[in-house]
């Protein structure tokens, strides 16, 4: 069991966004929105599985950038 690390998730998404040539300002703005939504969903829960958290972030990411959402969801299927 580990604590939800918002900082590392934000950093990871920023790196992915930059690699996908998403403008930095736009990426930071929608990553903020996504993390706010995720935090909101987590308020009622004391514990969540990695899979559920990933699904939650993916669902939010999909609203803003399909490629970023796809990379986030499928990265570990590549190997």
């Amino acid at each position: 069991m580990k604590l939800f690390d918002e900082k590392s998730l934000r950093q990871e998404l920023k790196i992915d966004a930059r690699a996908l040539n998403i403008p930095v300002g736009a990426a930071e703005s929608f990553i903020d929105e996504i993390l706010k939504s995720v935090q909101k969903s987590l308020q009622n829960k004391s514990i969540i599985t990695d899979k559920d958290l990933k699904r939650l972030v993916y669902k939010e990411l999909k609203k803003y950038h399909s490629d970023l959402a796809y990379v986030y969801k499928n990265r570990d299927t590549i190997i």
Binding site: D16, A19, L20, N21, S66, D67, L68, Y70, V71, N74, R75, T77, I78
Partner: peptide
């Protein structure tokens, strides 16, 4: 092309 294209 990007990583998403590669994954697809």
């Amino acid at each position: 092309h990007n990583f998403a294209d590669f994954l697809r």
